[in-house]
Amino acid sequence: MSIADNLIAFTFAAALLTLTPGLDTALVLRTATVEGKQQALRAALGINAGCLLWGAAVAFGLGALIAVSELAYNGLKYCGAAYLAWLGLNMLLRPRSSLSPAEADARPNANWFLKGMMGNVLNPKVGIFYVSFLPQFVPQGHNLIAWTFGLVSIHVVLGLLWSSTLIGATQQLANVLRRENVITWMDRTTGLVFVLFAARLAFSKR
């Protein structure tokens, strides 16, 4: 794939991931509805700051791993493919029909930037997803660290745009995203994409 193809493919996949209702969407919606737009914006900035921190950890850690060990790289690749396949199959076969009340619950009057950031930093699934997902979009022979930060930045921009949209139209979008058929469709679509990317990662070469 060319550099442009890589960027288009990643942007599409990241956009789909961003639009799929989950913990981050639930937190932004709940905060905007209950505590107002300013607090919701702080939560959104915190969520994306957490993504940047995970991106930094993956960029430097994965770069060192690839540099020293072909075996470790292949092991990581297959573990990442297995994780993506497991995640995708779960979404395909057992899609949600609603957002969990626990996901939407949050303590009022919290530091929303810190809460949003720590929600991502303390979630190892974000790091595992980045490790398994980002490397397949880095063109061969290009700087892994620079490309990882670039790809994470695309994800962050998409996340901020989506959060801003949620905050700006809280009631209307909240009602749509809480519909059973929308959540189920998004889970199944994202699951299919994850399975396809798992296959791509498993058969990719260094």
Rank of each mutant, 00 (worst) to 15 (best):
D5Y: 12
L196M: 14
L29G: 02
A56G: 14
S98V: 01
G191D: 13
G127M: 07
I47V: 15
T18V: 13
R96I: 07
H155Y: 07
W54Q: 10
A198R: 04
A49N: 08
E180C: 07
D187N: 13
L158N: 02
I128T: 12
Y130V: 00
R30Y: 08
T18A: 11
V182S: 02
K125S: 03
N111R: 10
A4T: 14
N109A: 15
V156F: 05
M186P: 09
T18C: 09
W185C: 05
W162C: 03
F60A: 09
V156Y: 05
W162E: 04
T33S: 14
F197H: 01
L99N: 05
V138Y: 01
L23T: 12
A198N: 02
S2A: 03
R179V: 09
L160K: 00
S132R: 03
S97C: 03
D5C: 01
I47N: 06
A146I: 10
S98M: 07
F203Q: 11
L53K: 05
N111M: 09
G116D: 06
F133A: 02
F129H: 01
L62Y: 15
F60I: 11
G63L: 02
N90S: 13
G61W: 06
N6M: 08
E35Q: 14
F137R: 00
L84V: 04
G88C: 04
L99T: 06
N74M: 12
F113A: 11
K205L: 12
L192T: 15
C79I: 14
F149K: 04
L53S: 02
A9W: 11
A26D: 08
L27T: 05
I145P: 08
Q140P: 02
R30M: 10
M118K: 11
L16Q: 05
A44E: 05
K115T: 15
A174Q: 13
T18P: 03
P21R: 07
V152E: 00
T31Y: 07
A169Y: 14
T170A: 08
T25F: 15
T170R: 05
S98W: 01
A198K: 00
G61A: 11
V58M: 13
